[in-house]
Design a protein around this nucleic acid. Structure first.
Length: 428
RNA sequence: GGCGGGGUGGCGGAGCGGCCGAACGCACCGGUCUUGAAAACCGGAGACGGGGUGCAACCUCGUCCGUGGGUUCGAAUCCCACCCCCGCCGCCA
């Protein structure tokens, strides 16, 4: 959520900045300013009326103290209340109108975020490595590990049990997932991230607070009977964890690494990426999350990206870092980097991880602040980034480790954490 | 799931329907005293929003005692719903 005071102070600047996201956001700023003006106009009247009634109530109290009869004042009070009712209702209406628009307006993109709205407008920041050479025609992860291969990924049974875009992960791939998680966790704990297993069912407030609602409501599974929502990322509970709190400045930055299962409806993705486990309804993820002082957030953003790159490099991936264009940013992000890994099976770069600076957008919605030395409380900045996923990281490892005979070897670094040297087909 | 108790400022904890934005204690900030500190004493301090100002200091008004409704001229205080915490019972991976 943006700062209304800031928008009021510089409406044209705000609109110009938001125009990089598209026209809808610009129109919303106008709506917001209208609603805000209306609200303040009514508010002035309502507050004057309230002041009058407060004074009258005080007069009644004093009269009663003296043992006098206050019937006349009481009658007057009833009258004032009557007159005020319409304005109070108008105020509630104006408030609601403003809130609605305010929740919809996305974060202001950082000036350095590239122009454009399409995936292709992303700027390549840098490349690492080069595409692996196999000396044979590389296969994709489903050929290698699916029903026709090592039988470690079973989408067919899952389709019967749960529907499309679900899968069973079996045998050595499960060991690999847990090894990856342990390895990642170890690395992040060394970097002083606090591990967290958060709740994956959250209330509506958490979804709104992190900016997933209203923008991405269609992507979220809802449990109607309990009024809870399944998170698509640990970002939601990690961002909400300190909601309403005023953090101590000395505690910043707060860095967490959350492990959670993630649930995504993938509405609107019909027919897209249906092969294998690239785009699925359920996967596990190790997520980076940081709370920091506003002055530090751009450094923190680079730091999170560097960690993601370190992970990708140690796993042996060839990738490019892209800077997501303003028009393609999620509502909460001011700037976002993706790491796109080269997939031998698809012969192209695909999103592996993502890393966003949401500045104070989520903090304002969730009311998470800190008190600078001697100053007034202000909103923290929040950032999030993917460390490791059980879908795409696993997928890439399978494709990178393949050999001519269809067997798959795994990186040395994971062996101490329980990963097998070579993936074996399960007994059953 | 059933029954009972409870949510008040940074923390603890009072609070009669009007004199309560809220006693008191701790923590905090400033001052006196002291070579310095501690102690003692004196004083000050909440958040958010509107207006007076372009900002700030400051002044002023409003809102906030878990959340949302209601009763009342007037609600921290009474009523209802919801959320959360604690206890006991039941059920259970």
């Amino acid at each position: 959520m943006l700062d209304v005071g800031q928008i009021r102070a510089d409406p044209e600047g705000t609109k110009a900045a938001l125009a990089r996201r598209g026209e809808a956001a610009v129109r919303d700023v106008d709506l917001l300013l209208e609603a805000d003006a209306r609200r303040r106009e009514v508010l002035a009247r309502v507050e004057a009326a309230r002041a009058e009634r407060n004074a009258a109530a005080k007069a009644i109290a004093e009269a009663k103290q003296r043992g006098e009869d206050a019937a006349v004042e009481i009658a007057r009070q009833a009258e004032l209340k009557e007159q005020q009712a319409a304005d109070e209702a108008a105020l509630a209406e104006a408030d609601a109108a403003m809130q609605e628009v305010l929740l919809r307006v996305p974060n202001i993109p950082h000036p350095s975020a590239p122009a454009g709205a399409a995936e292709e407008d992303a700027e390549i920041v840098r490349m690492h490595g080069r595409p692996p050479e196999f000396g044979f025609e590389p296969r994709d992860h489903l050929d290698l590990a699916g029903p026709e291969g090592l039988r470690l990924i079973d989408p067919e049974s899952a389709a019967r049990v749960s529907g499309s875009r679900f899968h069973y992960l079996k045998g050595d791939l499960v060991r690999l997932e847990f090894a990856l998680v342990q390895w990642g966790l170890q690395k992040l704990v060394e970097k002083e991230f606090v591990p967290v297993v958060p709740p994956v069912l959250v209330k509506r407030e958490a979804m709104v607070g992190t900016g997933f609602f209203p923008e991405a409501e269609a992507q979220v599974y809802a449990l109607a009977t309990d009024d809870l929502y399944l998170v698509g990322t640990a970002e939601v509970p990690l961002a909400s964890m300190h909601g309403g709190e005023t953090l101590a400045e000395a505690d910043l930055p707060l860095r967490y690494v959350g492990f959670s299962t993630c649930f995504r409806r993938e509405a609107g993705a019909a027919g897209k990426d249906t092969r294998g486990i690239f785009r699925v309804h359920q996967f596990d993820k190790l997520e980076l999350f940081a709370y920091c002082r506003p002055d530090d957030s751009w450094d923190e953003h680079e730091r999170l990206l560097a960690i993601e790159e370190e992970i990708a490099q140690e796993l042996g991936f060839h990738y490019q870092v892209v800077d997501i264009p303003a028009g393609d940013l999620g509502a909460s992000a001011a700037r976002k980097y993706d790491i796109e890994v080269w997939l031998p099976g698809q012969e192209r770069y695909r999103e592996l991880t993502s890393c966003s600076n949401c500045t104070d957008y989520q903090a304002r919605r969730l009311n998470t602040r800190f008190r600078p030395a001697g100053g007034k409380p202000q909103f923290v900045h929040m950032l999030n980034g993917t460390a490791i996923t059980s879908s795409r990281t696993l997928l890439a490892l399978i494709e990178y480790g393949q050999r001519a005979d269809g067997s798959v070897t795994l990186p040395e670094v994971l062996r101490p954490y329980g990963a097998p040297e070579v993936l074996q087909a399960p007994a059953a």
